[in-house]
């Protein structure tokens, strides 16, 4: 209403902005659309015309995958590992962060620093020695051999996110709790946890996504095919059925559906998770 005449220059620059944004959008979407549509084609169709719509539409690739017990076992394995990792990371990291945030004791900063080293720690460099440690603990060929290290490597970030959160909860609350005869654990359970729900959600979502996508550790640890997670299944199917591009694409697309659903639901948490860590303030 307020804008009576829009300067021509402004319209032009607007247009340029949109063109750029749409071009990037296309760059993001085209590979994904290609994969989704590819699953509806035959390998022959894809080979003949890499660019094009399914003609005719083939449903056997998707239906075959959905009917495959191996696929569902992998969905279950991925889900179990992601949830177990998250359910362990939440108590471990929040208890530790609580202590490191609210209580003063000798060695506190040293312990905190000890945890933060993990943020710089190149996980890949740890893989081979970690694998040997898991072997000594008899955790190879066992989902817990993936879950426990994932928890361990997830702790630093979680603690680093949670500690300031706990710190910023006013001291008055703690005073009141002490006066009410609340010990540290009850204070943690009844006051801290409910108040830090946003931070905990962020950690959960980041952990689930990270676990869902993990490849290297499961590759080396899950030595039995019935324990495989989806990334291992996708990798295997892409070598095993390398000749059947359409099937590979269908399998791949179906494997990312859960992650995309989670992203659609919890985008806010994911984005705030990655930014809260990095951006000051």
């Amino acid at each position: 209403m307020a804008v009576a005449t829009i300067p021509v220059r402004r319209v032009l620059s607007r247009t340029v902005l949109y063109v750029v944004a749409l071009a990037v959008l296309a760059l993001i979407l085209v590979p994904l659309v290609y994969a989704v549509l590819g699953g509806f084609r035959t390998t022959g169709q894809i080979a003949e015309r890499p660019v094009g719509l399914p003609d005719p539409w083939i449903f056997t690739n998707y239906l075959g995958t959905l009917r495959s017990p191996a696929f569902w076992r992998q969905v279950w394995n991925s889900t179990f590992i992601a949830l177990a990792t998250t359910l362990l990371i939440l108590p471990l990291s929040s208890l530790a962060a609580f202590a490191l945030a609210r209580y003063r004791f000798r060695g506190r900063e040293a312990i905190y620093t000890f945890f933060t080293i993990g943020l710089l720690y190149p996980v890949v460099a740890a893989t081979l020695p970690l694998w040997l440690t898991l072997r000594d603990l008899d955790l190879l060929g066992n989902p817990w051999g993936v879950i426990l290290p994932q928890v361990a490597f997830g702790l630093p970030l979680s603690i680093v996110i949670l500690r300031p959160f706990f710190r910023n909860i006013p001291d008055d609350l703690e005073d009141a709790a002490i006066i009410d005869g609340c010990g540290p654990l009850r204070f943690y359970w009844h006051v801290m946890l409910p108040l830090s729900r946003p931070a905990l959600s962020t950690i959960s979502v980041l952990t689930i996504v990270g676990s869902w996508n993990a490849f290297l550790l499961p590759l080396l640890v899950l030595t039995r095919q019935d324990q495989w997670t989806l990334p291992l299944g996708v990798n295997n199917i892409s070598t095993q059925y390398g000749t059947d591009t359409a099937l590979v694409l269908a399998y791949t697309v179906l494997s990312i559906v859960p992650a995309l659903i989670l992203y659609a639901i919890a985008e806010r948490h994911i984005v705030s998770g990655v930014t809260s860590g990095a951006v000051k303030g």
């Binding site: 694998w131 072997r135 190879l140 060929g141 590759l219 080396l220 640890v221 030595t223 039995r224 095919q225 295997n236 070598t239 095993q240 390398g242």
Partner: peptide
């Protein structure tokens, strides 16, 4: 029965054997 393509087999059997299983 565990069926693997040649290269995938080499990848998969390696950790399995190294884990002494």
């Amino acid at each position: 029965i565990v069926v693997n393509e040649n290269e995938a087999f080499k990848d998969a059997i390696q950790p399995r054997l190294q884990s002494n299983d």
